[in-house]
């Protein structure tokens, strides 16, 4: 007997019962949309045009979170992390081009940018984590990590579109490390250490709504006009920083990217050049969970498939032809 197309199709249609039931059932009603920002969401506004690259935030972050030194220079004198890592939650990076003649200019210029957790509104890491070790606070929206739940699978590390959660590869008891917006300092009445120490107000802390309004105010400013920039916490700012407004790119990064983030960024240089990729508005978490809920929503499809399979196997094993 040779296999004909007919035989194959028959076999495939029967054999792939589970697959076809599960995969071909369109269920648009179950499609999960982007999650929404918690009303009291807290976050950061990073304005690259104000950042002078002093690394005060890097040092303060280390201190506030009790993280160890990370050296990258031959003399091994200072904490000089090259990137965020299992030992560093926050880093300032430099963009350089050509002669580096002017700050915040794309050609022949340079710019500083902060890299730390963006606290997505609909985070991929939370969606990826199988054991609820990554959670998003329903009130503040802070994405935090629970080492006691974590199994160390690093799905969050791989899933994050910004490469933020980092793993410790050099210990027998590793943890994931990421910025948690200094939530451990909140009971003491303190806020994010990076914003607290920022001398220029480049990193500003506060409710995301207020930060977004502030970002819009800055985008509306005329280049060169004297402008006032709040420092610290936008609700209770320190003495302001007064200086001429820079030339802004008319875009707030994090406003729409993968459903929005609670850290917003302003810059004079294209974000893609600063390591912040152009991302769609639909969150990857919602895409993934739509696929999953389409296939496994209420376990309906798998149970139907199991019923079919039990029937089919019973039939074949009963007639003795294929019985064990």
């Amino acid at each position: 007997m040779t296999i004909t197309r007919r035989h194959f199709l028959k076999a495939a249609s029967a054999g792939g019962a589970a697959a076809t039931v599960a995969l071909a059932t369109p269920a648009p009603a179950e499609a999960r949309t982007n999650k929404l920002m918690p009303p009291k969401a807290l976050g950061l506004l990073f304005d690259a045009t104000l950042c002078i690259g002093c690394k005060a935030c890097v040092a303060a972050c280390k201190q506030a979170n009790g993280m160890p030194q990370e050296v990258s220079t031959p003399e091994r004198l200072w904490d000089t992390p090259l990137d965020i890592s299992g030992k560093t939650l926050n880093v300032i990076k430099v963009y350089q081009h050509g002669t580096n003649a002017e700050k915040d200019r794309e050609t022949n210029g340079f710019a500083f940018v902060k890299k730390s957790c963006l606290h997505c509104v609909d985070p991929s890491c939370v969606s990826a984590c199988p054991v609820s070790a990554m959670t998003k606070d329903p009130e503040t929206g802070i994405v935090s990590y629970d080492k006691d739940a974590c199994i160390g699978c690093r799905y969050c590390v791989a899933a994050c579109p910004f490469g933020v959660p980092r793993f410790q590869y050099d210990t027998a008891t590793p943890q994931i490390q990421k910025c948690q917006l200094c939530k451990h300092r909140m009971p003491e009445g303190k806020f994010a250490a990076c914003a607290e120490v920022c001398p220029t107000g480049a990193t500003l802390y506060g409710p995301v709504e207020a930060l977004k309004a502030e970002a819009k105010r800055r985008l509306a400013m005329k280049e060169g006009d004297e402008a006032v920039f709040a420092r610290g916490d936008i609700r209770t700012p320190y003495a302001p920083h007064v200086r001429p407004a820079a030339k802004y790119l008319q875009r707030i990064y994090g406003e729409t990217e993968i459903g929005g983030t609670q850290m917003l960024l302003l810059s004079g240089v294209a974000f893609a050049k600063l390591g912040y990729p152009d991302l769609p508005a639909q969150s990857y978490a919602s895409r993934s969970e739509t696929v999953q809920s389409t296939l496994y929503g209420g376990m309906v499809a798998p149970l139907v498939a199991l019923g079919g399979l039990i029937w089919a196997v019973r039939r074949t094993t009963k007639n003795g032809e294929a019985g064990e």
Binding site: A18, L23, A159, R287, S288, Y296, P302
Partner: peptide, 14 residues
């Protein structure tokens, strides 16, 4: 279920 899900693992990577 899981052989198909091994593919779905990648969806969230975007």
């Amino acid at each position: 279920m899981h052989q198909s899900s091994l593919g779905s693992l990648l969806v969230v990577f975007g």
